[in-house]
Each structure stands twice: as C-alpha cells, then as structure tokens.
Nucleic acid binder design. Structure first.
Length: 247
DNA sequence: TATATTTGACCACG
DNA sequence: CGTGGTCAAATATA
C-alpha cells in the first residue's frame, strides 16, 4: 500500500475522468462518419472504465472494506453445516467491467489472476448465466478466493464481477501468450454462427451444438492471452503493484 | 498424461 | 420447494 501512498489518487482520478470525457466527446463527434474510429474509441473508453473499476478495487483492498453496492453485507455469521470452507465471512465486493461488444476478447476481463471455472448457473430473472470461478491455487496454496461473473442485462458489453475473499496465494507472473490475431479471427469466423465471438476454448462437444443461442457463455479467464496490449498493460501493472503492495 | 471446462446433480438456505 | 452455489464425472485441451 505504500506504493500507492506516493501516488495522489485524486489526481489520478481527475486525469482519468478528463480522458474519458474527451474520449466520449470524440466518439460522439465521430460516430456519424467514422465507424472504425468509434470502435477504437470504445476500446479507449473500456480502458477508462476498467481503470476506475481497478481503482475502486484497490481502495477496497487497501481499506479491507468489504463494501458492496447492492449486495448484502456478509455479516450473517452463519455456521456452515456441510463445508467448513465456505460461507466464511469473507469480504465481498463487486465491480463492473466493460468489454467492447464486438471486440469482446476475454483479455479485457482478465484481472491478472489465475482462475478456474467450477460452475455456471442460469439466474432467475437474468438473461445471462452467472459463472463461478475459484482461484487456481486453491488446492496447492489454499487460496479461497472466488469470483462470479455475469453479463449485465441492459448492457451486454458490461460484466458484473463479484469477488469473495482475498488472494492468499502467490501467483506467478503472467506470461503473455502470443496467440496471434489470425488464429483468433479464424476461430471466430468458424464459430461465429452459433457462438459468440471472442471466447477462447469454446469446446464444441458433439452433443452441444443443439442449443442455438442459449446465451453467450461466459469467458474463461484462466490464462488469458492479451489481445489489446496497451490496455492490458495498464491493468496488469496496476494489479501487480496492487499485489505486491498488499501481500 | 495432466490440467481445465462443461454440465447435471446435489445440497443448504430462505 | 425453488433458487443459488458447489461438486464431480465426463469431456476437452495442451
């Protein structure tokens, strides 16, 4: 946390806010004429959104404040009857991450940690399923963090990410896999008809094709190649300093 | 072979 | 009893 103590958070927010505002204005200017620029701007705006989300996350982590908007505080000290490892009083908080609709590469949802998906549920009243992830190092290091990811109803490019607990593990540095655009593009092209674009590892089981579009399944976050370098680097660096400063 | 995801079953809680 | 969260076998991927 000392790392960030040297940074004036308010100034950072101010700069980010300004940048985002300008980008918004520019987008509206360009929208009628230059679609490609708008697309690029969408990415820029995503970066701002994510930066704010990360900042938020950082603050919560530093303060150890499990404040959540909307969801209930986990203060009901209930004793787990079956599994002592869950339902502990764990800090939970959520953040929203925007992913550009057309370029919804999973890299943009990557938060720098290794996650393992262990479930997915359709949620009553929600159009999109909720995906459940736990830290990859649960078994080896006993790291109990989990997170849930769900696509927002109104804005399909917006994901709600809810974290439970804090990482107690040591995560090795992410290595940027160099999955080239061509591979990805090609795969998207092949699967574009049935499945949405931008997902890795959409396994096409033989008996799985039946459902045309139940929903876009959620991204897998586990080792995510970085598609958009300049954006991801920001997130990564923030999270790295986050990690080093918190642990 | 090892590791990750998918998916229906299972279970606790309200 | 319905719903959300987790488990675990089957399956996919590297």
């Amino acid at each position: 946390m000392e790392n960030f103590g040297t940074i004036n958070r308010d100034s950072l927010i101010l700069e980010l806010t300004q940048g985002r505002t300008y980008a918004n204005q520019l987008r509206e200017e360009l929208r009628p004429t230059l679609a490609s620029c708008v697309n690029l701007l969408e990415r820029v705006l995503s970066s701002y959104d994510n930066a704010f989300a990360l900042l938020n996350c950082m603050t919560l982590l530093r303060n150890g404040d499990p404040k959540t908007e909307g969801s209930e505080p986990e203060s009901k000290a209930q004793v787990p009857s079956r599994n002592p490892k869950k339902r502990k009083t764990m800090a939970t908080w959520s953040q929203q991450l925007r992913v550009c609709s057309e370029t919804a590469f999973e890299g943009q949802l990557d938060d720098g940690y290794y996650w393992r998906k262990y479930g997915q549920k359709d949620i009553l009243g929600s159009k999109h399923p909720r995906a459940y992830y736990r830290c990859t190092h649960r078994g080896t290091q006993g790291c109990l963090v989990t997170k849930q990811v769900q696509r927002t109803d109104k804005d399909p490019s917006l994901f709600e990410v809810t974290y439970k607990g804090k990482h107690t593990c040591i995560q090795e540095m992410r290595k940027k896999k160099k999955e080239n655009l061509d591979t990805k593009k090609r795969r998207e092209g092949e699967e574009a008809s049935e499945r949405h674009s931008g997902q890795r590892n959409l396994t096409s089981k033989p008996g799985n094709q039946e459902m045309p579009i139940k929903d876009l399944s959620l991204p897998t976050f586990t080792s995510s190649p970085t598609q958009i370098g300049f954006e991801q680097n920001v997130e990564d660096s923030i999270f790295r300093s986050l990690k080093t400063s918190l642990e």
